[in-house]
Computed example of a mutant assay.
Amino acid sequence: MPTLSLPIVSTCSVSGCSYNHDHDCQAGAITVTGSAASCGTYVGGDAKGGVDGGTAMVGACHRTECVHNADLECSAEDISVGAGKDPADCLTFSAA
């Protein structure tokens, strides 16, 4: 079985997310979903989540019309997350 190389979340500017620690996403993996390529892992609030020192990856992408989507997996080298139509969107999203 081949090893899947998941793209990293290189930047996250969503300071109100529980997984954001100093503009680095500390979730193990995120899911990109929704009509605005939103980060489905976004959790607003004061609680802190994730693992300090970790690097989040894109675990799944539901946006089949994105040029980086291959079989519901992200094929971009890395992605950026920030405010868009939703508080936390995949800013690397690009419609085919």
Score class of each variant (00 low, 15 high):
Val58Trp: 00
His68Asp: 13
Gly44Cys: 04
Gly45Pro: 04
His68Asn: 08
Gln26Trp: 02
Lys85Glu: 07
Pro7Phe: 05
Met1Tyr: 13
Gly34Ser: 07
Pro7Arg: 11
Ala47Leu: 08
Glu77Tyr: 13
Gly28Glu: 03
Phe93Arg: 00
Asp22Leu: 10
Leu91His: 08
Gln26Ile: 05
Glu65Phe: 05
Cys12Ser: 07
Ala27His: 03
Ala27Phe: 08
Tyr19Asn: 04
Ser35Phe: 01
His21Phe: 02
Ala29Ser: 12
Asp86Ser: 11
Gly40Lys: 06
Gly49Met: 11
Val14Asn: 07
Asn20Leu: 03
Gly40Trp: 00
Ser13Lys: 15
Cys74Gly: 00
Val51Cys: 03
Asp89Val: 06
Ala83Phe: 14
Leu72His: 15
Ser80Phe: 04
Thr11Trp: 03
Lys48Ile: 00
Ile30Trp: 07
Pro87Asp: 01
Cys66Phe: 10
Ala76Tyr: 09
Ser75His: 04
Glu73Ile: 06
Cys17Trp: 15
Cys25Lys: 01
Val67Asp: 14
Ala29Asn: 03
Arg63Trp: 09
Tyr19Cys: 03
Ala95Asn: 08
Gly28Lys: 02
Cys25Arg: 10
Ser80His: 11
Met1Ile: 12
Ala76Asn: 06
Met57Tyr: 12
Ala96Met: 08
Ala76Glu: 12
Gly28Asn: 10
Thr11Cys: 00
Glu65Gln: 05
Asp78His: 12
Thr92His: 05
Asp46Ser: 13
Val67Gln: 12
His68Met: 14
Phe93Gln: 13
Val14Trp: 08
Ser94Trp: 09
Cys25Asn: 10
Gly16Thr: 15
Ser94Leu: 10
Val32Ser: 05
